[in-house]
């Protein structure tokens, strides 16, 4: 069998092994590739950075464990940015899995310690400085609801405490009082938040989506409907860089740490695609195109 035929009929498990090594080696021995910030991410960051102390930011946590590598670093970075700037984040979730993610992210940032070992945000109180309202089913119905009132749509917060009377919701009564809407989503929630929330009430929107969804959201960014667009782990790494997560916590964020493996594995995949195509065309020219392939 010729070399080109061998390559075309390569056992797929050898490809898996190569990918395994492409991810393992840069994760264990970091290369330290620089992360270039794109305008889509910069604009989202600048939007939140431009808010004033006490402004409310609504963060809809609509991703589950399967999107942790792509969406979770953004959630953590945005929360750090909010608490550093003394903004007041209000977290909601429109998918059941998002509840666990929001709880984990909030817990991590509230108890975060800096490089000097001191607590970063001491004394923050739920219902005053931030709030997590939990999960609510109904998608657009929930958004229409919070457009009228937070407390009637979410009578209790995630801890089961009544939201009526909480100082935060005396000032931030509905979506109209929110300054920026951030949607960290692994499902199609940005398309739900956009017409019923952001566009309807004129709230600028920043979207953190999985890489798979990024292509479909670029038209919304180009049209100016999304102010910021953070696509996949790359977008998350850029946001971590802008927020300065490494300086704040003393260690690089998980998205930034994952970009070395991302770059190496991409190089390998591009190489494999080119090699397989070259071999395919060589074999076709010989008139013996291999059946199947890697």
């Amino acid at each position: 069998m010729r070399l080109t035929q061998r390559i075309l009929n390569l056992d797929r498990r050898i490809i898996y092994l190569a990918i395994f090594l492409c991810v393992l080696i840069p994760t264990v021995i970091p290369i330290g590739f620089d992360v270039q910030v794109t305008p889509e991410v910069q604009r989202g960051y600048d939007l939140i950075e431009g808010l004033r102390e006490g402004d409310a930011v609504l963060i809809s946590v609509d991703f589950g464990p399967s999107a942790i590598p792509e969406n979770y670093p953004v959630l953590v970075s945005v929360l750090h940015q909010c608490f550093r700037k003394k903004l007041r984040p209000i977290l909601v979730s429109l998918i059941p899995d998002g509840r666990g993610m929001a709880t984990k992210g909030l817990d991590e940032v509230l108890h975060a310690v800096g490089a000097d070992g001191k607590e970063l945000y001491p004394g923050l109180q739920s219902g005053v400085d931030y709030s997590f309202l939990g999960y609510k089913s109904g998608n657009n119905a929930v958004i229409v609801g919070v457009g009228q009132s937070f407390t009637s749509t979410f009578p209790t917060d995630s801890e089961g405490k009544s939201t009526t009377g909480q100082p935060l919701f005396k000032q931030v009564r509905s979506l109209k009082d929110v300054k920026v809407l951030v949607n960290t989503a692994s499902v199609g929630m940005p398309e739900v938040w956009l017409p019923y929330g952001a566009q309807k009430f004129g709230i600028p929107m920043v979207v953190s989506c999985t890489a798979v969804s990024t292509v479909q959201y670029y038209p919304f960014y180009n049209a100016g409907q999304f102010t910021g667009l953070l696509g996949g782990m790359k977008g998350a790494a850029e946001y971590e860089k802008l927020v300065g997560l490494a300086e704040i916590t003393g260690r690089p964020g998980k998205a930034t740490a994952g970009m070395d493996a991302q770059a190496v594995s991409h190089v390998f995949i591009v190489f494999a695609i080119v090699l397989a195509n070259v071999c395919f065309f060589i074999e076709r020219r010989r008139g013996t195109a291999a059946k199947g392939g890697a």
Partner: peptide, 26 residues
Amino acid sequence: ISFGAGFGYTVMARMSLLIGRFQFLI
């Protein structure tokens, strides 16, 4: 071209999942 861009992003998404698991293990 749109499918190609989508495929590229899909590769990045799948790699992200694998990287996430490696980070968990390490």
